[in-house]
């Protein structure tokens, strides 16, 4: 109903017009450039660009490590959220505030810092190396970086749902004779499932596109520890704009599908939160 209808509060035309213009100029038109550029490629060239073995190896690493990192974060993120909501312990407020560190810390800083920790002579690396565990400059390093940047997503989606969970539900389960373990498994976790899945999807989506924190620790060996965003940059530096854009459009399509999925998950989280409370 944009248009003819008169409105009482002022500024509708101005604010919506500005919003749409700014959104188009900064986001939509530049993003469309990726697809328009890709569309000018021949199907053969496009296929070659996005299915070269070295590129496919990056998909495998980016998606594989991101899935694994998100899964690790679901487990530990849930435990952290549980500790923050259900237990009182000294320093709880500080822990709560620091959970968002990966949002606030520039990715390059996280990258060099993680590398310093896990390199051969680093704080942790010096103990792990003799055990035969190599982390920095291997795919495991990529995983470590992606766990770091994905952690707050799971904690921050689960935490509010856990807080809103009424104690009465658990009281009811207990009064019906359920053991604590049964209550948690059958009553509490199902209520948290939508939030856990949302957190997983958010952490996964972020990890797939992550660049800064990964490239320092990854070692960036072709076919081994090279991530998809890096291959885009590599192609750009070789002035292979078409190739870079082709890979970018694969990632974009994937991101949009994931965004759609996340929106559906969040809708589900909201609805089930209402149902439970």
């Amino acid at each position: 109903m944009v248009g003819v209808q008169r409105r009482i509060l002022p500024g509708f035309g101005l604010s919506l017009g500005f919003t749409l213009a700014y959104l188009s100029l900064i986001v939509l038109i530049p993003l469309s450039a990726v697809f328009l550029k890709t569309a000018t490629m021949s199907a053969g060239a496009l296929w070659e660009a996005i299915s070269a073995p070295r590129v496919v190896a990056t998909y495998r690493l980016s998606f594989g490590a991101s899935l694994l990192a998100a899964a690790v974060n679901v487990v530990f993120g849930l435990m952290l959220a549980w500790s923050l909501v259900r237990y009182s312990f000294p320093g709880r407020k500080l822990v709560d505030a620091l959970i968002d560190l990966p949002f606030a810390l520039p990715t390059a800083v996280a990258g060099i810092s993680l590398t310093a920790l896990y390199a051969k002579n680093g704080w942790l690396g010096q103990y792990l190396e003799p055990l035969g565990i190599k982390i920095a400059f291997t795919p495991t390093g990529v995983l470590v970086a992606l766990i770091f940047i994905g952690l707050p997503f799971v904690v921050r989606t689960v935490q509010p749902v856990l807080e809103d969970l009424e104690a009465e539900v658990e009281e009811a389960a207990a009064s019906l004779g359920a053991s604590r373990w049964q209550t948690v498994i059958r009553v509490v976790l199902p209520a948290l499932l939508p939030a856990l899945l949302t957190g997983f999807a958010l952490a996964f989506a972020r990890a797939v596109g992550e660049y800064g924190s990964v490239i320092f620790i990854a070692g960036n060996l072709p076919m081994v520890s090279e991530i998809t965003p890096l291959i885009i940059i590599t192609k750009l530096e070789q002035y292979d704009y078409a190739g870079a854009t082709a890979v970018a459009s694969v990632m974009l399509v994937f991101s949009f599908v994931l965004l759609l999925l996340i929106n559906l998950l969040q809708e589900w989280t909201r609805r089930s939160a209402r149902k439970v409370s």
Binding site: L23, Y241, M251, L252, L259
Partner: peptide
């Protein structure tokens, strides 16, 4: 519109740079 506003969060930073190179 709300979804579109959130869009930049789901785009890899590398692609965010790339789009301006293309333009």
């Amino acid at each position: 519109l709300i979804t579109l506003i959130d869009l930049p969060f789901s785009v890899s930073p590398v692609i965010a740079g790339l789009v301006f190179v293309l333009v």
